[in-house]
């Protein structure tokens, strides 16, 4: 194993140790996650892919502190205590407050922080510019397209400057074109800020395009069955990267791994 501890990252940013999670079922509890282990270093972009219903979102909710689970979840070596502003979350359903305008959605988290009002306004203005929604500050979410809503959701999360970003299929509800634009934006933001990112997705291309590392999850009960290190040049444009042999080789490997899990899941379902 290659030593990843040569720099300052002695303690991984996130440690998930033997995490299991079951939901109450009709007769017996349904096991969603079984002894999942995962460590993520500071500045790493890790994606989790797997067949639908494999519990990958559950893992993210556990890490977010929204769901209780067996096992240990450590951030900076300390056990998490419920949700916290150190872990910013972006949901597939945007989860914007419909009764707040774009600006007030972005300000929501800041208003709970220690910053002065002028400083908060400055951050909100800058983020509104970053996401390209100048002129839409006073609109309500219902007046925005899906892509715009997700931009606001990302800006709202970035406003609190969390060390960790948890992304739950963030672009799953967007059309293909908007999704690509948003992926490029996310990549740019990540290259700029180097936050620690855990992204749940079912889009293998997206995972390979954005991540340092991809974890493939098995069908329920979810377990991480395979890991792929991605070592691609992030600075070359999307078209060249997507048509490169290196990208396609990796993409195919991951895709075949996910497909095996999906087929296994189907067989399992057919038997039940």
């Amino acid at each position: 194993m290659r030593a990843v501890t040569d720099e300052k990252a002695i303690v991984p940013k996130i440690q998930i140790q033997a995490v299991s999670k079951s939901y109450p079922g009709d007769k017996n509890p349904v096991l969603a996650l079984r002894t999942v282990d995962l460590s993520i270093n500071e500045g790493e972009f890790v994606s989790i892919v797997g067949p639908s219903g494999c519990g990958k979102s559950t893992l993210l909710y556990v890490l977010g502190g929204f769901l209780e689970a067996d096992g240990k979840v450590l951030v900076d070596g300390k056990a998490i205590q419920g949700p916290g502003t150190d872990r910013g979350v972006v949901f597939q359903e945007y989860a914007l407050f419909p009764w707040l305008t774009v600006r007030n959605n972005i300000l929501y988290g800041l208003e709970r922080g220690a910053l002065a009002p002028e400083e908060r306004a400055r951050i909100a203005d800058r983020l509104i510019g970053v996401i390209g929604l100048k002129g839409f500050e006073d609109r309500y979410p219902r007046e925005l397209s899906g892509g715009m809503k997700q931009r606001v959701a990302i800006a709202r999360t970035l406003a609190c400057d969390p060390a960790i970003l948890l992304l739950d299929e963030p672009f799953g509800a967007l059309d293909a074109q908007t999704r690509e634009v948003m992926q490029d934006e996310l990549l740019r933001i990540w290259l700029e800020t180097r936050k620690t990112v855990l992204m749940i997705t079912h889009d293998v291309n997206e995972a390979v395009y954005l991540s340092n590392r991809i974890c493939v999850m098995s069908a329920r009960p979810g377990q991480i069955v395979e890991e792929f290190k991605i070592d691609l040049d992030r600075t070359i444009p999307r078209e060249r990267l997507f048509t490169s042999d290196a990208f396609n080789k990796t993409r195919n490997e991951v895709w075949i791994s996910v497909r095996q899990q999906a087929l296994a899941a189907e067989k399992l379902n057919a038997r039940v």
């Binding site: 909710y61 977010g64 929204f66 407050f97 929501y108 999360t157």
Partner: peptide
Amino acid sequence: TPRVLVWGAQALGARPRE
């Protein structure tokens, strides 16, 4: 109330009373 709205607020630092 959708749970993601609740979770979203919690992740942004909202306290139970808020």
